[in-house]
Design a protein around this nucleic acid. Structure first.
Lengths: 189, 189
DNA sequence: GTCTATAAAGCGATAGAC
DNA sequence: GTCTATCGCTTTATAGAC
């Protein structure tokens, strides 16, 4: 509070997240993180009390955003219009700021996140989001299509390998495919 | 050759794969694997020369199956009928024998597989399979829909939470959704 | 084919100087 | 706020007895 941290805390978060995503959380040691930053392990422990806490601090902001979306969605009537609005807002949070790198870390570290409280919380929110998108259609087809609509947004980041493609084009095509899936749910229930 | 292994090698593969899938490859020690089997670590090293090799040996069989499918697909004309046949055969390999647990391990250990040769090989085959399913449609929408068609088969294993659902019902709904995605590719190119 | 014992290295985390 | 030094522990992997 009295003195500036010089953004060291934020640099640790960024570098750690990058290495955790590339190599995996368990396979990345704090020595590697410290070396890439040009500091020692002990410096890391001044800013964070454990390896877990680096992840937790990064994920918290993401959690708040998803929470708000789930809360809003659950107050809306279960209509096709609501579902389209949900997936569109979800895509917005996925294509904004550092959020994409947080979710790429999440995709690449499923097992590690099982034993991290922040990971379990995000998983729970994703299931609730999928339930909202299924909109009362409890059939296997409804559940699968709702989940894939969510996956369309994530998958657009690595499955689309068109050279020179922009973020807004990725977003547009992801929503186009997601909308087809949501429409198929509505058409069948 | 001269003496029976008593199936110990196969038991090691099964237990290791199960723990690697539950907890992650890096987070699982060979001590844990040995303890669950009721043997010591040294016994594991008699059957496999390293931790990597346990994974490699398990993945090899899976690799051969995907290889055969990709080779067959690449000789077929790029038609909707071919794509539907490919995804159907893919689903067959996914719902047969121990193959599902191999692919669940694969899903849960993306980063660990980056540094394992067997993992890199499977990743390459999946991209070639997605290319076949896009059937010459190089557009972002085509690539995304082709990849999601493949994901529909995988996702049906955990996204569908209907109580008492059977494997053949999972397979049927996965193919139904995959077919919709493939039809959307054909309709737009 | 499985055991005991151990080597060699790396890990997360902490103490205390500056 | 970052350092050096180190603790205690676990890891993969090997040697050699049985």
């Amino acid at each position: 509070m009295s003195q500036s941290t010089g953004g060291t805390r934020e640099r640790i978060q960024a570098v750690a997240l990058e290495l955790f995503t590339e190599q995996g959380y368990e396979a990345t040691s704090l020595r590697e993180v410290a070396e890439r930053l040009g500091v020692t392990k002990a410096a890391l422990y001044y800013h964070f009390k454990s390896k877990d806490e680096i992840v937790t601090s990064v994920v918290e902001d993401r959690l708040v955003r998803i929470d708000a979306l789930v809360a809003w969605a659950e107050t809306q009537p279960p209509s096709l219009a609501t579902q389209r609005a949900v997936i569109e807002r979800y895509a917005d949070t996925m294509f904004t700021g550092e959020q994409p790198s947080v979710m790429r870390f999440f995709e690449q570290n499923q097992t590690a996140l099982k034993s991290l409280s922040a990971g379990r919380e995000i998983r729970e929110r994703m299931f609730r989001l999928a339930n909202v998108l299924a909109a009362g259609d409890e059939s296997p087809g409804g559940q699968l299509r709702a989940t894939l609509a969510l996956f369309a947004v994530h998958t657009s980041w690595f499955a689309v390998r068109t050279p020179g493609i922009t973020d807004s084009e990725r977003r547009r095509v992801a929503l186009e495919v997601a909308d087809e899936l949501l429409a198929a749910i509505a058409a069948r229930s």
